[in-house]
Design a protein around this nucleic acid. Structure first.
Lengths: 337, 337
DNA sequence: CTGAAAGCGCTAACAT
DNA sequence: ATGTTAGCGCTTTCAG
């Protein structure tokens, strides 16, 4: 079988506890023996058995966290991948592995949260009324939610401040002189489902509309070319015609731009466009798009850091909203230019 | 602390071994006691401790597999997500969890492959000369590679038959009467790096060109609008001018179509287009695209099934190439129509 | 059909 | 500074 710590101890001519302590550094070991142990480890190719270690230690640590990611089809894959990537890399930075669970596998969390399989959980794409939140809260394991549920219980949350993002987009356009703004948002079902970010963005947009005296018309769209075109037509047809568009729907964005081009509407001369999406998505369009950026990498990193803190020691519940920032890529201008 | 099998045994008035057997079904237990045990489990909310189970069992099974996924930026996120999703869902179907490792974390595989943390490994995006292959082979753990390395050792592989895919695309166009075909492929660095699929597709395309008497000109492109436009211009400028394009570069595809539109080239009247990409990507373009489809879901599912077989019992090395199929979405026609 | 008991590989008191 | 030993929660002989 595999080489155990007993083999190492024997090879080094010491007891198992000495070998264990020499490796963990949890008590002083003479330089000489420590070197002998390390030599034995190297020679035999010893690898600690993670399971046994977790079983035996006083404060069992699996050195693994679970990540519930929206793997269902139809979700915005680029953003999801950015979050997942950032989370995995940051976890590795902390010496943690990541166990990937599907979004709806509540049973999976319960299975995995028990018995030191994982030390904590990161949950992506949390809806306002999310059945997973209560279940997770009941587990009493460290957890960080990406999104803002109505009742987070003792769980901590981190997310982009989508309300501020919505405001920022509209205020930017209002400051340029736009008085009528159309919003191409996620499909209605997202807001109906109470998906937190969609609801909050809509609220921010509406608030800023009121505050700046700008009329705002929001339509939902799926990610297809046809759906996006229909949404553009819908929002432009409504009188008074909007002179600017806010697009918070990543897959639809290229199709929105294509539809505007097909209609002969130049950006930004005829219609200004502000997207709410990650920087690289905005930059990668056929024409670069001014955007309120979703700093997926930053948020993912923050989530892991918060989780690590909570695994290490009891911590008060905390909600962190990341302030949005707008990057001008030239797709907006005054309405009459 | 958490409720253990000893608590269950006590509550049911049986010994721990009886409780264990009642739950595992590994020996006959009277109906009556089995029900008492199950009642105790339900009442106490008992959850088996995965680590302890793995430690104790004769054939330690972590019921977890590792997945090395290309999480670096710039990779084709949609396809990656499709694979990851299919693999996670299929793993859950087999009662397995998935530990997500980054592509280059060779150290991670060694850490995790030992000590029943994972029972096997699925490796995505394997290059022709991939340093991970030898490392994995040396580990002697069940592993399935997505891609075709030059020297797979005792590891099994599964992938789309990209050579056949390249042939299929060109043969389809040749059959329609095209004699000059341009190929917009992945960036040159992919082929230089020997990334298996890019090399194989290029070979298939070249073979079919020879066999059908069709001239083939291949250019690499990154995924940006500018890069794709440059690639299109390059390939079209070359005399004799191609009357059809094969696009094997998912992020570039929308930009290729946009560039053709901008040049006033209608699809398929002026230029036919065949993509090599997943079905939904082809269908989601501004105009649907005829495509040789990459059945990501099928391949991912197959990979997990093969891995599960190899975890269960010794199996001979096996390489499975999935035959491609072309779905006509109307973006091709004869060159003179 | 059921119990008792010996470990799985490791850590952490408790001894020197 | 090092050794001895008792478990962690579970499976699986070995004995009834």
């Amino acid at each position: 079988m595999a080489v155990t710590i007993a083999d190492v101890a024997r090879a080094a001519g010491v007891s198992v506890s000495t070998a264990s302590y020499a490796l963990s550094g949890k008590r002083r070991i003479s330089e000489a023996t420590r070197l002998r142990v390390e030599a034995a480890v190297a020679e035999l190719g010893y690898r600690p058995h993670a399971g046994a270690r977790a079983l035996a230690s006083a404060t069992p640590r699996a050195r693994t966290v679970a990540l519930m990611a929206p793997l269902r089809a139809g979700t915005d894959t680029a953003v999801v991948m950015q979050f997942v990537t950032a989370i995995v890399l940051r976890a590795r930075h902390h010496g943690l592995d990541v166990l990937l669970l599907t979004q709806d596998d509540v049973d999976g969390v319960e299975r995995v949260a028990h018995g030191s399989v994982v030390d904590g959980v990161v949950v992506m794409d949390v809806a306002t009324h999310d059945p997973r939140v209560a279940a997770l809260d009941a587990l009493g394991r460290p957890a960080v939610l990406l999104g803002l549920p109505a009742a987070p219980g003792r769980l901590s949350c981190v997310d982009l401040d989508f309300e501020a993002a919505g405001r920022l987009a509209v205020e930017h356009l209002a400051a340029l002189g736009h008085r009528h703004v159309g919003v191409v948002a996620h499909a209605d079902e997202f807001r109906d489902r109470g998906t937190s970010f969609a609801v909050r963005l809509a609220r921010g947009v509406a608030d800023a509309g009121r505050a700046t005296g700008t009329s705002v018309r929001l339509v939902g769209s799926d990610g297809t070319a046809a759906g996006a075109a229909a949404a553009v037509d819908d929002v432009l047809a409504h009188a008074p015609a909007p002179t600017a568009l806010v697009v918070h729907n990543e897959p639809a964005l290229p199709h929105v731009l294509a539809r505007l081009a097909a209609l002969g509407r130049r950006v930004p001369e005829d219609v200004s466009v502000v997207a709410v999406c990650p920087a690289d998505v905005a930059a990668r369009q056929s024409t670069p798009v001014t955007a309120v950026e979703i700093p997926a990498e930053h948020i993912g990193t923050l989530a892991v850091d918060m989780l690590v803190e909570r695994i290490a020691e009891e911590r008060p519940t905390e909600t962190r909203l990341v302030a949005p920032s707008l990057v001008d890529r030239g797709s907006t201008s005054g309405p009459l230019t």
